[in-house]
Amino acid sequence: MMRRLVLFVPLVLFAVMALLFKVMIGHDPTELDLARKGQALPDFTLTDLQNPEQRWTQADLLGKPYLLNVWATWCPSCRAEHPVLVDLAQREGVRIVGLNYKDDRAAAQQWLVKLGDPYALTLFDEEGRFGLDLGVYGAPETYVVDAQGTLLYRHVGVVTQDVWRNTLAPLLNGPAGGSQ
């Protein structure tokens, strides 16, 4: 009888997994809702990735709308996304602020040397505190922030030309984003 019960183990494990799928199915990872939507960017004081002496706070970023891109060298999708960001920065002059998330400073610096640096500046969030305040789910993520430092939108996952054209660009250049 015991041996017969053992044969039920795979079924039970599968049931648990199916339950997990069931509860997670409704959510679309690329469109997580943003708890802080319409609110100001959370406070932070972070060092610059390239220059550990340089400290940035949210006040330094005000004045022009920008994309806040969360990335890390441990994230393969970030690598796939990177050429798009470089292209946006170079070709269209988009202002992108990098948030290097839970990463190694030297590795991240080297990454930018190798793959090109699309960022106006890169914040170094080694322990992920700011990421936690912001509600970062994983890398890559890209936030649209307007000139007053208000969070307008979050995109989870890789930014492609399509995402830029159809979603991010209208927000960044739109009435809320563009009003300076």
Binding site: F21, M24, D28, P29, T30, S77, A80, G138, G157, V158
Partner: peptide, 15 residues
């Protein structure tokens, strides 16, 4: 195909 995991290869998500 379910879109519950993000991936470079992922097809469009549709609940």
């Amino acid at each position: 195909r379910s879109g519950i995991l993000t991936s470079v290869h992922a097809f469009a998500a549709d609940p």
